[in-house]
């Protein structure tokens, strides 16, 4: 591999100097740096990437988490009140955009250490999973809702609704399939989300955000922070405006503390260990209604029937 410093700063004559990308977090539909000004570095490079060997990634702060929560909350009403069909169309559009960036996503995964074969498989699986959830959007109600045959002259039914703002601590790996598998089941039903991307390969997460930003998804529905799950997770778990939290981490102590922190606001906290994360790679076990149902509220409505 070429000497990276040469590649960035001292291109030989006639060779074009590349333009490396600044990687930013995705909040409220905009790409931003951390308000803290802090950053951390990830390394690794691959053929086809213009980036330097070492790249600076925003280190999301407590206040970034707060701002992301506000953005997610602001987007909630608009997103949850769209028709299920429309949400399905937007997720399908996301699948299209992911497919169109196939090569870039593969390059990014390889740069973080995947073999090319595995990277291609992961991108394929991610696109297919996006298509699966796109098609689920307007079926959830049929699967979850009910008419309730109550005793007495009443018309009663139970409907699923979005739970609200769901925080997701995404798995470190698989970097792309992990994001698709944990974000889509949350937003397909109308929730909005604040996601902490895995610390190891945030660049793939940012490219994924660029896909989100160009797929008709309204700003604020998905907000992605980069940084450390153990810093941002507890902030999100304690934040009273966050309705639910799902954490995908092998760190048992972190899982326990998130569950404990969430209790203060009766937060719906679901944690997954390494085994749960591994299941995401499985075509069947990695997707399903179960992932969606966790972040639905059920509303039962009664009305008398009479004259």
């Amino acid at each position: 591999m070429a000497n990276p410093s040469k590649r960035v700063s001292a291109a030989p004559a006639r060779q074009r100097l590349s333009i490396p990308k600044a990687y930013k977090m995705y909040v409220g539909g905009a790409f931003i740096r951390s308000e803290s000004g802090r950053y951390y570095q990830v390394s690794g490079m691959t053929k086809g990437s213009a980036d330097a060997e070492v790249v600076n990634i925003p280190l999301g702060s407590r206040k970034d988490a707060r701002d992301a929560v506000l953005a997610g909350k602001a987007a909630l009403h608009g997103w949850s009140s769209r028709t299920a069909f429309n949400r399905g169309q937007i997720l399908y559009r996301l699948a299209e955009v992911l497919e169109s960036r196939h090569e870039e996503l593969v390059t990014s995964l390889v740069r973080a250490g995947a073999t090319e074969r595995d990277a291609i498989d992961e991108v394929n699986a991610s696109v297919d999973r996006a298509v699966w959830y796109a098609g689920l959007a307007d079926k959830i109600s049929a699967l979850v809702a009910s008419h309730n045959p109550v005793s007495g002259p009443h018309f009663g039914f139970t409907l699923p609704e979005a739970m609200g703002l769901v925080a997701v601590l995404a798995p470190e790996s698989p970097a792309l399939l992990g994001l698709v598998s944990t974000i889509l089941p949350v937003i397909v039903s109308g929730n909005t989300t604040v996601v902490v991307a895995g610390e190891r390969d945030p660049r793939t997460a940012v490219i994924f955000c660029e896909c989100l930003a160009t797929s008709d998804l309204p700003g604020g529905v998905v907000n992605v922070l980069t940084g450390r799950a153990q810093d941002l997770g507890p902030q999100l778990a304690k934040h009273r405006e966050v309705n639910a939290l799902e954490a995908w981490t092998p760190d048992a102590a972190l899982r326990t503390s998130l569950e404990r922190d969430g209790a203060g606001s009766v937060k719906r906290v679901k944690t997954h260990d390494a085994q749960g994360i591994a299941a995401l790679r499985d075509e069947q076990r990695g997707q399903g209604l179960t992932y969606v149902e966790r972040f639905l509220e059920l509303k039962t409505i009664w009305h008398p029937a009479g004259i």
């Binding site: 707060r66 929560v69 902030q235 304690k238 934040h239 009273r240 405006e241 203060g264 606001s265």
Partner: peptide
């Protein structure tokens, strides 16, 4: 309290 509040409070 040390943590962020919800507007509904």
């Amino acid at each position: 309290t040390g943590f962020y509040q919800a507007s509904a409070d």
